[in-house]
Write a protein that binds this DNA or RNA. Structure first.
Length: 240
DNA sequence: GTCAAAATAT
DNA sequence: CATATTTTGA
């Protein structure tokens, strides 16, 4: 009976720098094609008001090369974020459930295609696993021990079918914008947290203390691609 | 030291 | 874009 998220007035923790867009920082970085194409959103455990000690950072003129010792932490997929991921995929449909689309639909700042792609891969394997286990087997559902994060999110029913039919929708006229006017959710990624007195839900539903709620992705019927006047929704024009 | 999750490479 | 492999975190 619970299917709608509860939009609590609580917001996520204020990030240090809200003025610096990751893109700008990204422009400064990227010395090599394959290094670490990730925006740096450093959640400093220590409040860093940016001391006026830029000394060697900027140096005089010509000093460029940004701090080389800045390594970026890994992405932490919190259940909420995964929920949003599933939500986006569910609303897009298997047909359009591609990393790029998902990423854009999620509108999560700091999230890149690679992140989504990787998670999507795992998600697909999780679904496949569940399918294989459901065949001729009664009772044994997903083990709480396997797929920790995935188990926390309800899997939409329409995920279990590959594709209804090769029906091509040639109605490229109406494009509907969805959840594009949302604010700018920030991605929370920390190095590692030690769940001190947090967590410990006896019923298996573990939760993460961080990451508040993201702007809801309003949407309706998924990919009811049944022929007829079904309106499949398409994504907005190429954004990023 | 092991397993899982994320990143990266193909 | 999907899959496989490697790396990193727990």
């Amino acid at each position: 009976m619970i299917e709608e998220e509860l939009p609590s007035p609580e917001e996520l923790m204020p990030l240090s720098q809200t003025l610096i867009t990751p893109r700008l920082a990204l422009a400064f970085d990227i010395p090599s094609p394959n290094h670490r194409p990730r925006q740096h959103q450093p959640p400093p455990p220590y409040a860093q008001p940016i001391p006026a000690d830029l000394g060697d950072l900027v140096s005089g003129a010509g000093g460029d090369e940004p701090p080389r010792t800045l390594k970026r932490p890994r992405l932490v997929w919190t259940p909420q974020l995964h929920k949003r991921f599933v939500d986006a995929v569910a609303h897009l449909g298997i047909n359009n459930a591609v990393p790029k689309t998902i990423m854009q639909l999620m509108s999560v700042d700091g999230l890149t295609r690679e992140n989504v792609a990787s998670h999507l891969q795992k998600y697909r394997l999780y679904l496949k696993r569940m399918q294989g286990l459901s065949g001729g087997n009664g009772g044994a559902t997903a083990d709480p021990t396997t797929d920790h994060l995935f188990a926390s999110s309800p899997v939409p029913p329409h995920f279990l079918h590959p594709v209804p039919g090769p029906q091509q929708q040639h109605h490229h006229h109406q494009q509907q914008r969805i959840a594009a006017a949302v604010g700018h959710p920030q991605l929370v990624a920390q190095y590692h947290r030690q769940m001190g007195q947090f967590g410990s839900s006896p019923n298996g539903q573990f939760e993460h203390p961080y990451l508040g709620k993201q702007p809801p992705i309003h949407n309706q019927a998924p990919s009811s691609n049944g022929n007829g006047g079904i309106k499949a929704l398409t994504l907005f024009p190429t954004g990023e």
